[in-house]
Amino acid sequence: MHLKIALAGTLRALRLNRRIRYEQLSDASAKSKISALERGETSITLEKFESLAVALDIDLLALMALCMSARLDTPYPTLIEQARAQLKAFEAEGGLELLADQFADGELVQRSRGKPVNTDNLNAVRKLKAEGMTQAQIVQKLGLSPTIVNRHWKRIVDEETAD
């Protein structure tokens, strides 16, 4: 089942259960949008999803758990336990520190443009360069493109001159 269909059923059930009319959800979204959501004809942004949760007086995570329960045909307590296990693993792997590093004063920390560096390839180039291999030899040995090897080579040289 598509997530927007699961949201449609969940939204409808919550609205009926709480005897909420479309007009009462107008702060969250237009009446026609709520109707289209309940028919599974449209999707919403995360911000609108949060607004719906507030308007329905339900915790955002509870609303998502209900939607995912419907989508996966799995009881929500099972999903919550699975999520809890994944969160604990994320925490044990140092993920919370990495998450905290992504923000400063409530704003997302900007990172440089471009593709993130493949540290395994960078370290392999670093090791072979230290062994005295040329860029061409490293291209042959690692099977990387000359452009990638050159990019890593320049980074290593820049690091060496910075020290």
Rank of each mutant, 00 (worst) to 15 (best):
A85G: 09
T161M: 11
A124E: 09
G114E: 13
R151Q: 06
L72V: 00
D59E: 11
I34Q: 02
I156W: 09
G40D: 06
T161A: 08
G9P: 08
T45Q: 14
L144M: 14
V125F: 14
L98Y: 15
M133I: 05
L98W: 14
A92P: 04
N123P: 02
L87P: 01
K154P: 02
L144N: 11
G94T: 07
R21S: 11
L56A: 00
A83W: 01
K48Y: 05
I34K: 03
W153D: 04
K88Q: 10
L60H: 04
L142F: 13
D27P: 05
V117T: 05
M1Y: 05
C67A: 02
A65R: 05
A53N: 02
K31C: 00
G143Q: 10
I148V: 12
S145N: 09
G94N: 07
D105M: 01
D158F: 11
D101V: 06
P77H: 13
A89N: 11
L16H: 14
E159A: 08
N123S: 10
F90H: 05
L108R: 13
L66S: 03
L37K: 12
Y76G: 00
A8V: 01
L66K: 04
R84I: 00
V109H: 05
L108T: 11
E23K: 08
L14A: 06
L46R: 03
E131Y: 08
A92V: 05
I20D: 00
H2D: 03
R155K: 14
P146F: 07
E131F: 09
L37M: 10
G132N: 12
E47Y: 05
L128Q: 08
E160S: 12
A65S: 12
R12N: 06
V125E: 10
M68E: 00
P146T: 14
A124H: 10
S112D: 12
A89Q: 13
I20S: 02
R15A: 02
K33M: 02
E160L: 10
A89T: 14
R84W: 03
C67W: 00
T119I: 12
Q82F: 10
T42D: 07
L108N: 04
K154I: 02
E38F: 06
A136V: 13
T10K: 01
A36E: 12
I20T: 06
A36S: 13
S26T: 08
S35K: 06
H2M: 03
S51N: 10
N118Y: 10
G94H: 12
Y76M: 01
P116Q: 09
Q135M: 15
V139C: 14
L52N: 03
V54M: 11
L61H: 01
V109D: 06
S43Y: 04
L66N: 04
I20L: 08
Q137I: 06
T78P: 03
R113N: 14
G132K: 12
P75W: 02
I34F: 03
R126A: 13
S112P: 07
G95Y: 07
E91V: 07
S145Y: 11
L108G: 08
L60G: 02
A6M: 01
Q24L: 03
T161L: 11
A36H: 15
